[in-house]
């Protein structure tokens, strides 16, 4: 574990300030630090972007407006107009994941979303919302979600079983997709970065030039990881709108 090139080491959580709450260790860690940073940055981004309230937006105001319109259009097109009630929730998910992913790409910064407990908790918050909204709005009729119309009665039990499994597996796929993407990306970046050091230190003379190969890989991977960071936030947000659409309009 002492090896500084260990690609797993970057995921270790270190307390910055010890806290105990009811026997649980709730220390303020490097992960908490990045989450707080994300919230502060999102708050500043939106607050400063809207401070002028100008009719013709400047650069920052354009960006805040674009992020707003982007998520609002996504919610409107997938969950319909009544889905806009959940717009703040989906916007918060999108921005939180986006900023946590992006901050994680800065060297020496921790990636909060590379821990499954965080992504799974976010996925569970989505599923809880879907269940509560669905049952509250439609009552027992919400379970029509599992009974597609127009299916022959002979295969209906099978279809219902499949629908149920697919519904129950949603929080797992939702959380694990984000987690695995961030984890794999960061392991890969760290691996190739480690190769640079290993080759440069390990090889002698002209062979040191060979270290340029993993260096090029790191340069190529970094924009890819930025894309993945954005894409995963987008996928998380759009699937959330799709699930909320199910809660609002069950029955296919």
């Amino acid at each position: 574990m002492a090896d500084p090139l260990d690609p797993i080491k970057q995921f270790e959580i270190h307390p910055m300030q010890e806290f105990k709450l009811g026997g649980y260790d709730v220390s303020f860690t490097n992960s908490s630090f990045v989450m707080v940073m994300a919230v502060v940055l999102i708050g500043l981004f939106l607050f400063m972007g809207t401070s002028k309230r100008s009719l013709v937006p400047g650069r920052l105001q354009s960006m805040t407006e674009i992020s707003y319109e982007f998520v609002a259009n996504m919610v409107r097109s997938t969950a319909g107009r009544d889905g806009l009630k959940f717009f703040p929730f989906i916007y918060a998910l999108f921005m939180f994941i986006l900023f946590a992913n992006m901050l994680g790409l800065i060297p020496f910064f921790f990636t909060s979303t590379s821990h499954i407990v965080v992504t799974f908790a976010l996925a569970m918050s989505v599923m809880t919302t879907v269940l509560v909204v669905g049952l509250w709005k439609h009552g027992f009729k919400f379970f029509k979600l599992f009974v597609p119309s127009g299916v022959p009665i002979a295969i209906l039990p099978l279809v219902v079983l499949l629908e149920l499994i697919s519904f129950l597996s949603r929080p797992f796929s939702h959380g694990i997709r984000l987690w695995a993407n961030m984890l794999a990306g960061h392991i890969m970046l760290k691996l190739f970065a480690g190769f640079i050091i290993m080759m440069f230190a390990g090889l002698g003379g002209v062979a040191k030039i060979g270290a340029i190969a993993p260096f090029i890989m790191v340069i190529a991977l970094t924009p890819l990881e930025i894309l993945v960071a954005f894409l995963q936030a987008y996928v998380f947000a759009i699937l959330t709108s799709v699930y909320i659409n199910d809660a609002l309009h069950p029955g296919h």
Binding site: V26, S32, M35
Partner: peptide, 8 residues
Amino acid sequence: TFPSQLFW
């Protein structure tokens, strides 16, 4: 580390 992560 789960309690701390979930808490924060």
